[in-house]
Amino acid sequence: MTNSTADKLGQSQLGTSRVNRGLAEMLKGGVIMDVVNADQAKIAEDAGAVAVMALERVPADIRSQGGVARMSDPDLIDGIIEAVSIPVMAKARIGHFVEAQILQSLKVDFIDESEVLSPADYANHIDKWNFSVPFVCGATNLGEALRRISEGAAMIRSKGEAGTGDVSEATRHIRTILGEINALKGRSRDELYVAAKELQAPYDLVREVAESGRLPVVLFTAGGVATPADAAMMMQLGADGVFVGSGVFKSGNPVERAAAIVKATTFYEDADVIAQASRGLGEAMVGINVSDLPAPHRLSERGW
């Protein structure tokens, strides 16, 4: 076998921002599914999930059971990593940098600093630049997305309202973020200083978004996606991919539903495929209308 690189070239660098944002690029067009144990992770992988998200309880159960929701037990995360070969993500509480340190030590592929869990710090998010593993964070608008990116997030997901099966907040958040990006296009430099002030986001990031017309990282949608049609709608609105939480494992037929959501996410512009994928899935998760949720129970309002 040839070995033409005996002479040393540049040093290899691990955990760079480019490598971490790059992993998010590879997930595009895919579905990331919430799982609480290895069995669910296996089902998700077999159904065509592009990654799985480990958490202690799916959002619908966090809602119904109440109490403090935290990072999963390391044994469960180990079991999930052992069970599948697609990337494994896991959730840490907002601001809980020690949960994040643990997740990095467990060698998860991505950490979700998530409003779905109970926040650990009501003032600060995790300084994500301190970690080698990439982070995904939720956002309801462009300013929030850019603040997370300035803290080191390698991927953004619009928040939606997790555990409801009501897609209306997911729609609102992805429309808001993409609408605010569009509104920056063509603005002059002096106007961008004002835009940065109004968005409460760093000027350099605001300028980068204005010039490129997109976020500097991948943007997925989450929170309330329960059907193939929901997933396809998010893709048509401009999401790079979809997170499905309670929508799969709180439905009547998780195996079929998971595979159907994967199909609809790839063929999101083809109504015939989405129609076919929507057949015979049994009951969708029992939903909660976001408008019926008292404001303190809205998870998307966590994080700032």
Binding site: S4, T5, L9, G15, T16, L23, V108, D109, S132
Partner: peptide, 28 residues
């Protein structure tokens, strides 16, 4: 290579493409 923690970027000599070496990203 392992988990995302083992993903890396490096300069790679690709003789068929000549100089300079190619900067290559290895992601899982």
């Amino acid at each position: 290579f392992g988990s995302q923690l083992d993903s890396f970027e490096t300069d790679l000599d690709v003789p068929v493409l000549g100089e300079p070496p190619m900067h290559a990203m290895f992601i899982r």
